[in-house]
Simulated scan of single mutants.
Amino acid sequence: MTKDFVLDRLQQYWLLARFDKPIGILILLWPALWALWLASDGNPDGLVLTVICAGVVVMRAAGCVINDYADRDFDPHVERTQLRPIAAGKVSPKEALIVFSVLALIAFGLVLLLNGLTIMLSFVGAFLAASYPFMKRYTHLPQAYLGLAFGWAVPMSFAAQINSLPLVAWLLYAAVALWSLIYDTMYAMVDKEDDVKIGVKSTAILFGEYDRHIIALLQIVMLGLLFWIGHLKQLTWPYDLGLVIAASLSIYQQKLIFHRDKSLCFKAFLNSNWFGIAIFVGLALSYWLQ
């Protein structure tokens, strides 16, 4: 086993886990940070913050690996995914399962540093993450299922910080699940033509010509939930300003997807990172000023 071989394997595993594309980490990380700041009233425990952030990075990587394993027969036929390591034949399915197992074990090792409630919730999170990639075979709502999986960082963050799951935790979970459904539908709009050809299901296909309208409705409901959370937690004007900025970004995303141009739909998906930043900065400043 030569040095060049080892380096090539590590590079392919890095690409397989999508570490070269941090947008996925960021849009997973923001809701976890929202939850930690809300649960701790702006002063999260250092160990909890470190473990949750590291867990998000590792579980996102594990999710990407198992997703590519599940889609290994579909990805070669989709323009956007045909160069992924498994689809391109650079990583074998067996290797992918080994990489996934290692990442899952690392994530479980991290969660063992936290309390019992968080450990119990981690099993639900692991199931949601591992089963999501197979949903597109059976339902037109895989993006909704992804929302349940991505949003699970919220109850885990509350459990880790305060060892309980108050109403605010579940309201935020609902908001984050809707947010994931919104941006992943925009993402699915990029692959809609290829998905129809190969028989993969998605909300972009299900919503059809009403995709923009349904996304807009979901955005309104999500922002309403976030406003309700701010009212319950008595957050001050920076949070409200953050919501206004987030609402403006939602309108901008609607403009981007208006003609369903693939590149602009993908740009709308990427813009979700700024939505996450706006909410977090508003939260952090509101607690800091208090």
Rank of each mutant, 00 (worst) to 15 (best):
C265R: 02
K90I: 00
L165Q: 01
W34Y: 12
A278L: 08
A177E: 06
I277M: 13
W228C: 05
A104W: 06
W14C: 06
A160F: 03
I52L: 06
V111M: 01
D261Y: 00
L217Q: 12
L103E: 03
K201M: 12
L26I: 09
N43Q: 15
G282T: 11
I66Q: 08
F258V: 12
A32W: 10
Y13Q: 02
D4Q: 14
Q143L: 05
V196G: 00
K197Y: 00
W237Y: 14
S131D: 07
L16E: 01
L10E: 10
L206P: 03
Q161L: 03
P22E: 01
M156A: 05
T118H: 01
S180V: 15
I198L: 13
E79V: 07
H213Y: 03
L256Q: 15
I162R: 10
F19K: 05
L15G: 00
D261V: 10
L171P: 06
P85F: 00
L289F: 04
G147C: 09
P22H: 01
L264A: 10
V78N: 11
L235Y: 09
L217H: 09
L167Y: 10
L171H: 08
I27H: 11
K201A: 03
G63L: 03
K136T: 09
A216F: 13
A62M: 08
K255Q: 13
V57P: 04
F100S: 11
I277H: 05
Q161P: 12
V196Y: 06
A144P: 02
L28E: 04
N163A: 15
K136L: 03
M59S: 11
P93A: 05
S157W: 07
L289Q: 15
L121E: 08
S92N: 04
L114G: 12
L16S: 07
W34G: 04
L38A: 11
I198E: 10
L232Y: 14
A204F: 03
G208Y: 04
V196M: 12
A130D: 06
R9Y: 07
K90M: 10
K21Y: 05
D211N: 12
F269Q: 11
D240F: 15
I279Y: 01
V48T: 14
P93Q: 04
I279P: 02
F150P: 09
Y239K: 09
S157P: 13
I182K: 03
L117K: 01
L117A: 02
L289I: 14
M186H: 13
D45A: 13
I52V: 15
S122R: 05
V58S: 07
A126Q: 06
A54L: 15
V51K: 01
L29S: 11
R84K: 13
Q234R: 08
L167E: 15
V196I: 13
L226F: 10
P238V: 13
T81A: 09
A177T: 13
Y252L: 12
